[in-house]
Amino acid sequence: MQIFVKGLTGKTTTLEVEPSDTIENVKAKIQDKTGLPPDQQRLIFAGKQLEDGRTLSDYNIQKESTLHIVWR
């Protein structure tokens, strides 16, 4: 499925993911596209910070959802 990651600059990155992907895995995909290391990424969805060990489905993140990224 496709999801979007929007940064503070307003730039949006598209990712191809599975609902079973962990947040850690998603951060690795973001690094592949942007070069930003996972330890500098904070992902937010529906006002919650996403924890590395959880999956996208744990947070009810579905296709075409938009996550927000904040740099540490």
Results as ranks from 00 to 15, higher is better:
residue 20 S to P: 02
residue 16 E to P: 03
residue 52 D to K: 04
residue 28 A to K: 14
residue 5 V to K: 01
residue 35 G to Q: 04
residue 37 P to S: 10
residue 17 V to C: 05
residue 18 E to D: 10
residue 69 I to Q: 05
residue 20 S to R: 09
residue 33 K to S: 08
residue 24 E to P: 02
residue 16 E to W: 15
residue 13 T to V: 15
residue 27 K to Q: 02
residue 3 I to P: 01
residue 51 E to K: 06
residue 4 F to C: 03
residue 63 K to D: 14
residue 66 T to E: 07
residue 36 L to C: 06
residue 11 K to Y: 14
residue 5 V to D: 01
residue 8 L to N: 08
residue 33 K to C: 05
residue 55 T to H: 05
residue 32 D to P: 02
residue 66 T to G: 02
residue 35 G to F: 04
residue 43 L to W: 03
residue 56 L to F: 02
residue 26 V to R: 00
residue 53 G to F: 10
residue 20 S to N: 13
residue 48 K to E: 11
residue 72 R to K: 13
residue 72 R to S: 15
residue 67 L to W: 01
residue 42 R to E: 12
residue 4 F to A: 04
residue 3 I to Q: 01
residue 12 T to E: 11
residue 25 N to C: 06
residue 70 V to I: 12
residue 54 R to F: 14
residue 66 T to Q: 05
residue 5 V to A: 04
residue 59 Y to P: 00
residue 65 S to L: 03
residue 6 K to W: 08
residue 70 V to M: 10
residue 10 G to Y: 06
residue 12 T to M: 13
residue 61 I to L: 04
residue 42 R to Q: 14
residue 33 K to V: 12
residue 26 V to M: 03
residue 35 G to Y: 03
residue 24 E to W: 13
residue 59 Y to A: 02
residue 32 D to N: 13
residue 32 D to G: 08
residue 46 A to L: 11
residue 36 L to V: 11
residue 45 F to M: 04
residue 8 L to P: 14
residue 3 I to S: 01
residue 36 L to W: 12
residue 51 E to V: 07
residue 68 H to V: 11
residue 17 V to G: 01
residue 23 I to E: 00
residue 45 F to T: 02
residue 30 I to T: 02
residue 50 L to I: 04
residue 18 E to A: 11
residue 17 V to F: 04
residue 49 Q to G: 08
residue 44 I to K: 05
residue 51 E to P: 02
residue 39 D to H: 11
residue 20 S to M: 09
residue 19 P to Q: 08
residue 33 K to M: 10
residue 50 L to N: 00
residue 19 P to G: 09
residue 13 T to E: 12
residue 54 R to H: 13
residue 42 R to M: 15
residue 53 G to W: 12
residue 72 R to M: 15
residue 6 K to G: 04
residue 30 I to Q: 01
residue 17 V to H: 02
residue 10 G to L: 08
residue 3 I to Y: 01
residue 45 F to I: 03
residue 70 V to H: 11
residue 49 Q to H: 11
residue 66 T to V: 14
residue 40 Q to G: 11
residue 56 L to Y: 00
residue 1 M to H: 03
residue 51 E to W: 06
residue 55 T to R: 10
residue 1 M to K: 02
residue 32 D to I: 14
residue 54 R to I: 05
residue 64 E to Y: 13
residue 27 K to S: 02
residue 55 T to D: 03
residue 57 S to F: 09
residue 41 Q to H: 09
residue 36 L to K: 06
residue 59 Y to W: 02
residue 68 H to I: 15
residue 44 I to G: 03
residue 67 L to K: 01
residue 15 L to G: 00
residue 34 T to E: 05
residue 23 I to C: 02
residue 26 V to A: 02
residue 56 L to E: 00
residue 37 P to H: 13
residue 29 K to Q: 09
residue 60 N to Y: 06
residue 67 L to Q: 00
residue 56 L to M: 05
residue 22 T to G: 03
residue 27 K to C: 02
residue 69 I to E: 03
residue 21 D to Q: 04
residue 39 D to C: 07
residue 46 A to V: 07
residue 43 L to K: 00
residue 50 L to K: 00
residue 72 R to E: 15
residue 65 S to C: 05
residue 49 Q to M: 12
residue 37 P to M: 07
residue 34 T to Y: 11
residue 29 K to L: 10
residue 1 M to C: 03
residue 50 L to W: 01
residue 16 E to I: 12
residue 27 K to M: 06
residue 67 L to Y: 01
residue 44 I to V: 12
residue 71 W to L: 15
residue 39 D to R: 11
residue 10 G to K: 04
residue 26 V to G: 00
residue 35 G to T: 03
residue 57 S to G: 11
residue 6 K to S: 08
residue 23 I to Q: 01
residue 33 K to L: 15
residue 51 E to Q: 07
residue 9 T to I: 10
residue 36 L to F: 12
residue 48 K to L: 14
residue 40 Q to T: 07
residue 15 L to K: 00
residue 63 K to Y: 06
residue 66 T to Y: 08
residue 12 T to Q: 07
residue 63 K to T: 13
residue 19 P to I: 11
residue 51 E to C: 06
residue 5 V to Y: 03
residue 31 Q to C: 07
residue 70 V to C: 06
residue 14 T to C: 06
residue 19 P to N: 05
residue 4 F to V: 05
residue 60 N to R: 06
residue 32 D to L: 11
residue 47 G to H: 06
residue 68 H to S: 10
residue 22 T to S: 09
residue 16 E to F: 11
residue 38 P to I: 15
residue 13 T to Y: 15
residue 57 S to A: 14
residue 53 G to N: 11
residue 6 K to D: 06
residue 69 I to W: 03
residue 56 L to K: 00
residue 53 G to L: 08
residue 2 Q to V: 15
residue 65 S to I: 04
residue 40 Q to L: 10
residue 34 T to A: 05
residue 64 E to L: 12
residue 42 R to N: 14
residue 32 D to H: 14
residue 17 V to Q: 01
residue 16 E to H: 13
residue 30 I to K: 00
residue 27 K to Y: 04
residue 46 A to W: 07
residue 36 L to T: 09
residue 6 K to V: 15
residue 54 R to L: 11
residue 33 K to R: 09
residue 57 S to T: 07
residue 48 K to W: 08
residue 13 T to D: 08
residue 3 I to D: 01
residue 39 D to T: 12
residue 37 P to E: 07
residue 27 K to R: 05
residue 20 S to L: 11
residue 40 Q to N: 09
residue 65 S to E: 08
residue 67 L to C: 01
residue 52 D to T: 05
residue 16 E to L: 14
residue 41 Q to Y: 15
residue 27 K to H: 02
residue 29 K to R: 07
residue 53 G to R: 10
residue 66 T to P: 02
residue 46 A to G: 11
residue 11 K to E: 15
residue 24 E to D: 09
